[in-house]
């Protein structure tokens, strides 16, 4: 029998490749961004190594930052809500099919992943453009064209499309292990369809909803490519603001500060959300 100490040391050794990996590719860039955010701007827009709090002070007064943050949050919330409303019935449908159909349906959900994401976003540009496929069809049947490209609505649409699988999969996982005789038990005890859903099924799939919501909200709120390609100035999100400060009109320290504040706010929001849902799901059957 190995001593606890040797055991402990061995565990560290075994974990070391993962540690090195995380340290190099996750921790180091993060530390760098933290450091950047407390430096002043060099004349070429990169970092001059003199310590300052000025970036954060400026950020708190920067109206465009808060407006962009608000739009990003708003879009991400709406996208999360819409994907949830579409995905729940879809996942329900999938989970209630006979077993041999389920894997085929799962495959269909994941099929879009086989094409590059950027290619799919450009496809939306072709579809939604002012002379795009949709407007040509509308003109063909004598209807007014719609001006959706370069707006937050185009961003919203493409994000919902792109994020849908990330919501469907955790919901499907939650519904697939749900014990359906509980619904019969609820009906048997006098619950109608709505009550059986809200009292029995919803609470037990809340963990799936939480997972899906985080999986959709986090990438959406920080999206860059979708809003860059489809959003124009109307759909200018945090990701585009960061791009601006690191690339177009460089101010790396300021960009780093935006990135830090954004990350802290996001982490805080998710922590609050998890705390709230954990109290709800407390006692749910694990696994």
């Amino acid at each position: 029998m190995l001593s606890a100490r040797t055991e402990h040391r061995r565990a560290w050794w075994q974990a070391s490749p993962a540690m090195i990996w995380l340290g190099l590719f996750f921790l180091a860039p993060l530390v760098l961004i933290v450091l950047y955010s407390f430096q002043s701007r060099a004349s070429d827009g990169t970092v001059a190594w003199t310590w300052t709090l000025e970036n954060y002070a400026k950020l708190l007064r920067d109206g465009s930052f808060w407006r962009t943050l608000w739009l990003s949050t708003w879009i991400a919330l709406v996208v999360t809500l819409i994907t949830l409303l579409i995905s729940y019935p879809l996942a329900y449908f999938m989970a209630t099919r006979p077993k041999r159909w389920r894997s085929a349906l799962l495959f269909a959900v994941m099929l879009p992943f086989w094409t590059n994401f950027l290619v799919r976003i450009y496809a939306w540009k072709v579809l939604l453009g002012n002379n795009g496929v949709i407007n040509q069809v509308l003109a063909g049947v004598g209807l007014e064209p719609i001006a959706i490209i370069n707006s937050q609505w185009a961003v919203l649409l493409a994000l919902v499309y792109g994020e849908l699988p990330y919501m469907i999969l955790p919901l499907y996982a939650a519904l697939e292990r749900f014990d359906w005789t509980q619904m019969e038990a609820a009906h048997d005890l006098g619950a109608g369809r709505v009550q059986a859903f809200t009292r029995i099924m919803l609470p037990q799939t809340l963990a799936g909803i939480t997972a899906g919501a985080i999986l959709v909200f986090v990438p959406t709120v920080g999206t860059f490519a979708v809003s860059d390609i489809l959003g124009g100035t109307d759909g200018f999100m945090i990701g585009n603001l960061l791009d601006l400060h690191f690339r177009s009109t460089p101010n790396w320290p300021y960009g780093a500060a935006i990135s830090m504040l954004f990350m802290l706010l996001l982490l805080g929001a998710i922590a609050l959300y998890l705390k709230a849902t954990r109290e709800e799901t407390d006692g749910e059957n694990p696994g």
Partner: peptide, 22 residues
């Protein structure tokens, strides 16, 4: 008549207790 309007109750083979409730 749907189950929730019948004056019968069932004890299920798997019990079908609600795990999220006491």
């Amino acid at each position: 008549t749907p189950p929730h309007q019948r004056d019968v109750n069932t004890v299920f083979q798997s019990y079908a207790l609600f795990p999220h409730m006491s």
